[in-house]
Design a protein around this nucleic acid. Structure first.
Lengths: 205, 205
DNA sequence: ACCTGAACACCGTTCAAGT
DNA sequence: ACCTGAACACCGTTCAAGT
């Protein structure tokens, strides 16, 4: 909860999280290129060698940052998923909008997560989180198949179509390859809904 | 055509292209993190300051590299598109497979193109190339709408669904977030075909 | 145990100087 | 015009030394 990272109040109990918070701030402010380990250390009020007590190297810190990004993404998708009153179609639509919205809102973290700056590691914890999010998607599809709304095909196969379309949308938007200039902030959601509706139409009976 | 970049045969006529070739080689071998301007210059046999005669800064060189990647991608898609004997459905399928295959075959360049390491510039030449590839996609869809194979909807809207799904596929695969281990090299194509077939089904009447 | 400060081998970029 | 070599301010990483 302590948000002031300015004073030189070093060697407190939780330098690890302080470093992560500083790194995320610098990432958002300056992009992944401007994120140096030395700048993170300075921002956290410690010497440039201190981070090595908590992270093996810079890549480990970036991986931890990406990990928290994946957890946030999974949480947002699951939240959209667990709205009981919604139909499977509505759940898919909301999950898709939430997915793309989060990616567009924090493009630097998305690029860190998906841009290849991070190499898959032995633990691959973030792959498990991605898997959990995907499984939630599969469950929605299964529900739709049961109620007869969706085509009676392998739910994994149908879920993959929905996931790839939403992910592609998110990546194209963060890479500025989709004309969002004509639409603006609210237009992003409308573009996502258009694609999502077509995907849902495609997997419906 | 001159492929040996070892001897110190500097200040030839075309250092610019020699630098681009050296950069691409280093990019493929060492990834985007290992691509330093000094290493590129050494590889090309010139001093570390020489590249600045041909590129304003490192970002300009990376942009030129991404640009050639976009041109290759557009060429591959157009080639798949212009197979006259194919139906619109077949053209879409082949274009999608070609798109993802190229991205998976050269993940480092794909990450450079789409990973956010490149900021959109004043000229934005690569956006025009991306636009050309997208227009080719729209034309296939229009053909399918004319022949009555596809739903009578805005072709741009339908094309966006196809594009986002294929792009998402390519990005998830290069980020190692899709289980390609169980399938292998040939399995990539099969996974792409599965998604592409579902997308085509979704936009068909 | 945890952090510091110096040190090393690298960077990107600039600039006077050479041909 | 085109390239070099020195210089500057930065990096990531290591390590002896401090508390």
């Amino acid at each position: 909860m302590n948000t002031d990272a300015e004073g030189p109040h070093y060697h407190h109990g939780d330098l690890r999280n302080a470093l992560l918070a500083a790194a995320e701030q610098l990432l958002v402010e300056q992009g992944v290129a401007g994120l140096s380990l030395r700048a993170v250390a300075k921002q956290a009020g410690v010497s440039h060698a201190a981070p090595y007590r908590h992270f093996r190297d810079k890549a480990a810190l970036l991986r931890a940052l990406a990990q928290s990004g994946f957890e946030r993404l999974a949480a947002v998708i699951l939240a959209a998923t667990e709205t009981v009153s919604h139909s499977p179609e509505q759940k898919l639509l909301e999950a898709g909008v939430a997915y793309v919205r989060l990616a567009v809102d924090q493009p630097e973290i998305s690029q860190l997560m998906f841009g290849g700056g991070i190499k898959p590691q032995g633990d691959m914890a973030y792959r498990q989180v991605a898997r959990a999010a995907f499984d939630a998607l599969v469950e929605i599809i299964q529900e739709g198949v049961r109620t007869g709304a969706f085509r009676d095909r392998d739910p994994q196969e149908l879920a993959l179509v929905a996931w790839t379309a939403m992910h592609g949308m998110a990546m194209l938007m963060t890479a500025h390859l989709l004309d969002t200039d004509s639409t603006g902030a609210a237009g992003v959601d409308e573009q996502v809904r258009s694609v999502a509706r077509n995907v849902i139409y495609g997997i419906s009976k």
